[in-house]
Design a protein around this nucleic acid. Structure first.
Lengths: 136, 136
DNA sequence: CGTTTAAACTACACTATGTAGTGTGAGGTG
DNA sequence: CACCTCACACTACATAGTGTAGTTTAAACG
């Protein structure tokens, strides 16, 4: 799977996926392997959703390599190919790299600004890192 | 104007705009106010492009608030509403902020990794910043 | 006037996403 | 065995963004 876009006006998983895709993924990440019906029932708690709609989107996620499908006798079971943590790890790394490649000093400066309100622990980490870099 | 997407598999302006949009913007950012014809001629140096295609895309950029159009007697003149520097400044800031908001410590850690290969000047800047933060 | 040409209007293609109708087939039950 | 249910497959349509380009309109200039 290769994520294509990072959406600026969204938050969380909606930055990487469509709205329904994101909801479905979140359900699968916060539960066991599920059938389409299972997922639909979860979705219905918030808003009634057509079975076929859920199926189509889930199958597309399989095509994209986000979900894996295991076909049982009567109902297929779906689960994510990777954990939410792995996903966020991968994406944040990719995006950070892209940002550095694309903007370099600009990005670092903005990061510094952002650090004004950041966790002191992060600042400590940064300090350590700089020491380490200077020793080279 | 509000950029919606940051494309991961592209580079430069193509991360924010369509391919033709990006080419046109780049031309307008590296030259004076131009007519559609002027832009088309520039584009033709690389690849012949239909006049109407150029016009449509340029007008869409006006609609989006990226270009401004000044209608003359026979031909309208176009120029960007902001400079490339301003644009990159804004976008890198927005993206950095989003990255920090979305990933927090993860993003900082990745940034630190990226710093391994970074300009020593950046590292120096970082060090200054950290000193400053610690004094608070 | 008529010719040229820029601009407007309109349209179609392609992709991604959300939505949903119809068809099909496997299994259980009377 | 016939039938019915239900999960899945197949297909289709809508919307939005982008690239492309044909047709029509209108303005300037010889």
């Amino acid at each position: 799977m290769k994520i294509q876009q990072f959406k600026i006006n969204e938050t969380g998983l909606n930055r990487f996926f469509g709205s329904l895709e994101a909801k479905i993924l979140d359900i699968l990440w916060n539960g066991p392997e599920m059938s389409i019906k299972d997922v639909k029932q979860k979705l219905d708690q918030e808003k009634s959703t057509n079975f076929n709609t859920v199926m189509t989107v889930m199958n597309r996620l399989v095509d994209k390599g986000v979900l894996v499908k295991r076909t049982e006798k009567r109902s297929s079971m779906f689960k994510p190919l990777f954990s939410k943590e792995e996903f966020l790890q991968t994406q944040s790394k990719e995006l950070t790299k892209d940002l550095m490649d694309e903007f370099g000093p600009l990005a670092v400066n903005h990061m510094l600004d952002a650090l004004d309100e950041a966790d002191p622990v992060l600042i400590e980490k940064l300090e350590q890192k700089i020491k380490q870099l200077k020793e080279k």
